[in-house]
Amino acid sequence: MDRVKQKARDLLDSNKVQVVIGYEEGTDGTARPVFIMDSKNIDKLIFNDRCYHNLAVYLTKVEVEKIGRVAVEASLNTLKGIVKLASEGQFVFEDIDILGVNRNGELYEFASLDEVIDYIDQHPVEYSPEEISLLRKIESMTREERWEYWQEEFSRCIRCYACRAACPNCYCDACIVDINQPQWISPTPDALGNLEWHIIRAMHLAGRCVNCGACAKACPVDIPLNILNLKLAEEISKNFGISEEFLLTNYPLAIYDPNDKENFIK
């Protein structure tokens, strides 16, 4: 962690970056994102298991852009978010300084986007046993039970859109739920509106989601959105036979590949 702090300090002092985005101690034993613009505050930086926020989410914000060049304390999940956003043209990878941190808070430096992708590739997503068992439990339900289950889960949704705010891939200036000409999705937090919102959110993330789980952790009413994402990831790899590494920089729902395993497209 000392090397992370040292590098962050150097970057700020030399004025190479204007802001360092990282984690600091929050209240009640939580960790929270912090924006450090003055190097004397660098010692606030921490990294541990409580730092689950995907900091890539801030990189597409106009307000952050206005501060100047950014350095990000990047966990594996944040790195994935960065690669995905760069592949969707939201910023140029070289315009961001990365303070990579591994699980133990040690500094990782990357010279290029390819190096980041290699690093991610060497560290596949690990789902917790709880996540896997919940997914299998839902899969084993009948259609009606599954429908009941999600209706029940979604019924708690208050449409605060914390899931959207926490997700690095939800960077649209005008989200579909905010578009009212026509009003595709009902903004009302009722059964239909909630169902529409969560289905469309899942569809918009299918093949793009980096499975960081930030959405589920942000949810104030504990809807297991991570399970939806996990299922989507499984479906995508099953139906498209595509590796996680490939998914990071490509969108399988929109590509034509002559070597696709399905013959019908030829």
């Binding site: 969707e88 200036d173 005008a174 578009i179 929109a254």
Partner: peptide, 17 residues
């Protein structure tokens, strides 16, 4: 300041035949 609701992800570019 929006100019367009397009966010420039250009995923449409790969889907366009």
């Amino acid at each position: 300041p929006l100019y367009s609701t397009c966010v420039g992800c250009f995923l449409c570019q790969s889907v366009c035949p």
